[in-house]
Amino acid sequence: MNFCKQRVMEVLSKGDLNDSTSRVCDLFLSILILLNLVAVCLESVDSINLQYHHQLMMFEWFSVSIFLIEYLLRIWSITADDSARGATPWGRRSSYIFSFTGIIDLAAFLPSILPLIMGGLDLRWLRVLRLLRLLKMSHYSSALEDLVSAVHEERRSFAATLYLLAIALFLSSSMMYLAESDVQPDNFKSIPESMWWSLITLTTVGYGDVYPITPIGKFIGALTALMGVCTVALLTGIVASAFSNQMVRREAIFEAEINAAMSDGIITSDEKLHIETIRARFNIPEEHAKAILDLLSEKKGPKTP
């Protein structure tokens, strides 16, 4: 039984390079998720939904069945994962159920089952909730994890920039309220109402639905636009720098693993597989990894079997 749980967990987890079954499962579920997004979008087109409603519903129930089985299998097999939180089997299961991925896995099929339990629900909202299935890709991609990790590492700089953005938001909306409230009482009748224009201007969107018409208001608008460019540039630079630093650290870890494998002058087949697994996990391009390996090989001159 434990072996079965272990194998099911390995198949449902992100596939290793030497586990073809797990990789096929990952590919199947990824394609199914993408097809579901296409189906949900097509359902919103009345002419397509009217003509192919039966086919779309059949595909929806097929997908719901697959996602439900996957969810139950993950709950059943999580007890075999020693890295999962919780000392007891139910502790590990609850840690998965209430985790981010567990909630997303539940949301992948629950909106389609709710109409059977509760009548009178707005199908448009349920259709939008079904788009949460896109987040199931986090099982097979580290993009969201990388973003959260990058922001967390630069959280102080990020918070400082958001603080500057908040200052600019309140300052510009207050000044614009004083300058434009008399001539445009509908658009700038209060500071909270003026914050719409301020936020759109600071984020460099500029819809053009609300804009100043007095000379002082135009001057304040120009200053707000300049502050917005500076603030957005700071936020973009912080995130870009965090991603860059993260990649540098990953390359350093990758180089350290290669150095450890070369310590005895020979890179064995197991060490090669371990290095390739780390390369795939860190999303390092094969050409880049080969260049690092060749450079270190020239320095140490290992003998590969």
Rank of each mutant, 00 (worst) to 15 (best):
N2F: 01
R7T: 14
V8N: 15
E10C: 06
K14D: 06
N18L: 07
D19L: 03
S20H: 13
T21P: 05
S22F: 01
R23V: 00
R23P: 01
V24L: 10
C25N: 10
D26P: 00
L27H: 10
L32P: 00
L35N: 15
L35M: 11
L37N: 14
L37I: 01
V40F: 06
S44C: 09
N49H: 11
Q51R: 14
Y52R: 06
H53Q: 13
M58R: 13
W61V: 06
V64P: 01
S65F: 01
S65C: 05
I66A: 11
S77F: 00
I78N: 08
I78V: 03
A80T: 00
A84E: 08
R92G: 03
R93H: 00
F98M: 12
F98E: 13
I104T: 01
D105H: 06
D105P: 00
L106A: 13
A107I: 02
A107S: 07
A108S: 09
L110S: 15
P111N: 10
G120H: 02
D122L: 04
L123S: 13
W125D: 12
L126R: 04
R127F: 05
V128L: 11
L135S: 05
S138N: 11
H139P: 02
L144C: 05
L144N: 04
L147V: 05
A150L: 05
V151S: 11
E153A: 13
E153G: 09
E154D: 14
A159N: 11
A160M: 09
Y163E: 15
A166Y: 02
I167R: 07
I167A: 09
A168T: 00
A168V: 00
A168S: 15
L169R: 08
S172G: 02
S173L: 00
S174E: 08
S174H: 02
L178F: 04
E180S: 02
E180T: 00
V183D: 06
D186I: 04
S190Q: 06
I191W: 00
T204S: 15
V205W: 08
V205C: 11
V210R: 12
Y211E: 12
K218V: 02
G221W: 00
T224S: 10
A225V: 05
M227I: 06
T231E: 13
V232H: 13
T236G: 11
A242N: 07
F243H: 10
S244Y: 12
N245V: 03
A252G: 07
I253N: 10
E255H: 03
E255C: 08
E255A: 12
A256Y: 03
E257R: 08
N259L: 05
N259M: 03
A261G: 02
M262F: 02
D264P: 01
G265S: 01
I266A: 09
I267A: 10
D270C: 07
E271C: 01
T277N: 07
R279P: 05
R279L: 03
R281N: 14
N283L: 09
P285Q: 14
P285C: 04
E286T: 01
E287W: 02
K290D: 15
A291G: 15
I292A: 14
L296A: 12
P305E: 09
